[in-house]
Design a protein around this nucleic acid. Structure first.
Length: 373
DNA sequence: AACAGGGGCAACCGCTTGCCG
DNA sequence: TCGGCAAGCGGTTGCCCCTGT
């Protein structure tokens, strides 16, 4: 069965010949592809427009990088896949010169098997229940189990079941960056001790700081889109009733992708108190535009009793000085998703987990395993 | 040398999304 | 608001090639 777009015409299918490639490249190089359905006709090809488009995107585009994936690319795929799941197009955006089809094929033919061989579930990136590789690690991690320098001290309790999903959403007041503030007036009495060097210890009783930097400011595109929609991650199920409608989508002027360089700090969040987060803008867009490595910070904390929407945007200085007064917080419904520019943004605790895992470097199950390609 | 099986990859299928009249 | 169309996207298929027997 052919494409509906070309069912009325006799089209060729199957592998492309060099002559066909030449025709397509020649036509697109000269005229572009404003309308794919008209390309085969004008290029003299007995193909449907969809086929031409695929051939161009996946094979003939001049900016494609052919050849085997590097180890760095491989790790990037795994890291991003842990966050996004099988969203190949999004993953491919982090690999210049690679197509979604190429990434998908590489995943299915190589990476997936490696993960399985290492006892990891390729869907969740958690250790498989029947893992025979020692069994020291749990079969699954909760959304708040952070691989931090001292893991036992930083395990954050799962959110209480009474907390609705929307409570995990936050508003981003600006498109340039973020810092999640926390409530230090209502710190947990028995909160885990802060680790040495924790930059928000003074007066900041509770909270979780995550920082990350962008090593590829010039590579990563201008948007940061972690809306997970129908995330396949099972870890969300542990989040006390959190539906998988939670997501993270920050349209940033020149965003950073949370990559391997990040570090994460965390301490406890008491059960029974909803986890919330505030955000603050980091004034770093200019740095990014200059191609500099940018450090961003995220602090996740708790509200005193209920979630508040404090409205006004905060500044970095304000939060650093007194983050209790300027928590930019938030009870938002899932309707915030998809807002453009500086609009509300959803925050995904699964993303936090994922970033914590692959950014932390200390406790990542994958990182702890040998990496033998 | 011939054959079978498996892996890798290009291409296709069909659903979803976005745009436009 | 609705329908049609084109593009985007992820899943799947099938062919080709390599390797082992």
């Amino acid at each position: 069965m052919g494409h509906h777009c070309c069912s009325k015409q006799k089209v060729k299918r199957g592998l492309w010949s060099p002559e066909e490639d030449e025709k397509l490249v020649g036509y697109i190089s000269e005229h572009g592809h404003s309308c794919w359905s008209s390309v085969p006709k004008h290029a003299g090809l007995q193909r449907c427009g969809k086929s031409c488009r695929l051939r161009w995107i996946n094979y003939l585009r001049p900016d494609l990088k052919r050849g085997t994936f590097s180890e760095q690319e491989e790790r990037t795929i795994i890291d991003v896949h842990r966050i996004l799941g099988n969203r190949w197009a999004q993953i491919a955006k982090h690999l210049p010169g690679r197509t979604d089809n190429e990434v998908k094929n590489f995943w299915n033919s190589c990476i997936k098997k490696k993960l399985i061989a290492q006892g990891l579930d390729p869907k969740t990136h958690n250790l498989l229940p029947a893992n025979g590789g020692g069994g020291a690690a749990p079969a699954a991690t909760t959304p708040f189990t952070i691989s931090a320098p001292a893991k036992s001290a930083f395990e954050v309790a799962p959110a209480p079941a009474m907390v609705p999903a929307s409570l995990y959403d936050i508003v981003v007041p600006s498109p340039t960056g973020m810092l999640m503030a926390h409530d230090h007036h209502h710190r947990a009495a028995a909160a885990a001790p802060m680790p040495a060097g924790y930059p928000y210890t003074d007066g900041n009783g509770g909270g979780m700081l995550m920082s990350f930097s962008d090593q590829n400011a010039g590579v990563h595109a201008s948007s940061m889109d972690f809306m997970n929609g129908s995330s396949s991650s099972s870890s969300m199920d542990h989040a006390g009733g959190m539906a998988n409608c939670n997501g993270f989508s920050a349209s940033m002027g020149a965003s950073a992708f949370m990559d391997e360089t990040a570090t994460m700090w965390a301490n406890s969040v008491e059960p029974g108190i909803g986890v919330v987060a505030g955000m603050l803008v980091a004034q770093q867009q200019q740095q990014r535009q200059q191609g500099l490595v940018v450090q961003e910070e995220v602090v996740l904390g708790r509200p005193p009793t209920a979630l508040l929407n404090c409205g006004a945007a905060t500044t970095g200085a304000a939060v650093h000085a007194d983050n209790s007064a300027s928590v930019e917080m938030v009870d938002v419904s899932s309707a915030v998703y998809g807002s453009a520019g500086a609009g509300p943004t959803a925050f995904d605790l699964e993303l936090m987990e994922s970033c914590g895992m692959f950014c932390g470097g200390a406790g990542n199950a994958i990182d702890q395993l040998p990496w033998d390609c």
